[in-house]
Design a binder for these strands. Structure first.
Lengths: 209, 209
DNA sequence: GTTTGTGAATAGTTTCACAGCA
DNA sequence: TGCTGTGAAACTATTCACAAAC
């Protein structure tokens, strides 16, 4: 195995592989070949082998991958081997849905803190998480929380981002429909839900493009 | 201008440009250069010019792009020049949030139909949309609905997808955390919310990768 | 002078095909 | 024999730099 930088596209696929491996593993399967894994999750086997080769060398020729090892190695690369905590900002419709979203558990990421600006929500508890006043956003640095989930209206997104960065957040999952500015060393991933829906019609058949 | 196939990555960025252009246009601005647009939305100017060059030729050297023209051309390419209708399946927490999601309006896409399996929800109205019985999913082909939004649990996703395809849906925005199988001619875009969050820790600083 | 549109150069990603290990 | 790991080839996308248009 050679020490390559791991391509971003590979990093993007790792959670997919991890989910598939966990699924098989929990079903009692001990090992799987790249082909079996690929068929399960809908990619090509060589893609999986190539991706694994960047941090590599835990497959056995003639056999496949030991799933426990696979899960451990991929988790470690993604830093999901230690439990990650996230703070949610914006407990509106989307934020509320995220608070109860079951999928985060699989990856060992938990929303442990929530903030909103609405006095009607502040002080209440949702999905076991106390909703705090956004004006008092802070102290996350001392609580080992380094991930933020941004589910506020566009107009507030940059301001809230700045507050998150000040209190030590180093990774932000952003649902506001625009790029947010962050200093070097802070990573943002923007999910533009409406933008994804908006490009779907392009691919509709007929109409002669 | 030459007739290139438009790269997928360009198609992905078009809704971003469209949103920026609409924003400026509504603020009373008549035209903008690639640099102005780029600064607004956080990309590089040459990227915008290159992207536009694929379906091209509506900028004026020395001046920039007329925003009305830009909006019209990009909308046409994305097929957002005619109002698009979407059906939502799964009115849980996430589905409910999507029903009230204001961003879809900007692109002229509307959720006009919703389905669920829960008898407690069927027959009720949410955000002005009647929730119908998922068992009766059909007839969308006669209602000019060709987009589907899938917000059901993973276990139901393939089955529901098949039903959607049978009733004429040709584009699916999938929130279930796995690839869904569709026949040729049907496009799916999967948004794996948890998977995006799961790759965020990889980019956290420190830890010596 | 300013800004577009685009070939050419560079960078990044996917796919192939096969040597080598179990 | 079956499957991994990986160079090399093919493909796709980004970035540059500049001639032409206004």
């Amino acid at each position: 195995m050679r020490y390559h930088r791991i391509p971003d596209e590979t990093v993007r696929r790792l959670p997919v592989y991890l989910r598939g491996a966990l699924h098989l593993s929990r079903g009692g399967v001990a090992s799987a070949s790249s082909k079996e894994l690929a068929d399960l999750i809908g990619v090509e086997p060589w893609q999986i082998r190539k991706d694994f080769s960047y941090f590599g060398d835990f497959g056995k020729p003639g056999v496949g991958y030991d799933l426990r090892t696979l899960v451990r190695r991929v988790s470690k690369v993604l830093r999901l081997d230690t439990r990650q905590k996230a703070a949610l900002v914006g407990v509106g419709n989307l934020g509320s849905a995220l608070l109860t979203y079951p999928e985060f558990r699989i990856y060992g990421v938990a929303i442990v803190s929530a903030f909103d600006i609405d006095p009607g929500k502040i002080g209440r508890t949702k999905a076991g998480v106390l909703i705090e006043d956004m004006a008092a956003l802070g102290g996350l640095n001392t609580r080992d929380i380094h991930l933020g989930i941004l589910a506020v209206p566009e107009a507030a997104s940059q301001e809230v981002t700045d507050a998150l960065v000040r209190t030590g957040i180093r990774g932000i999952l952003n649902f506001a429909p625009r790029r947010i500015a962050v200093p070097r060393g802070v990573k943002t991933i923007t999910i533009g839900i409406a933008m994804h829906l908006a490009r779907l019609p392009y691919y509709l058949p007929g109409g002669g493009r």
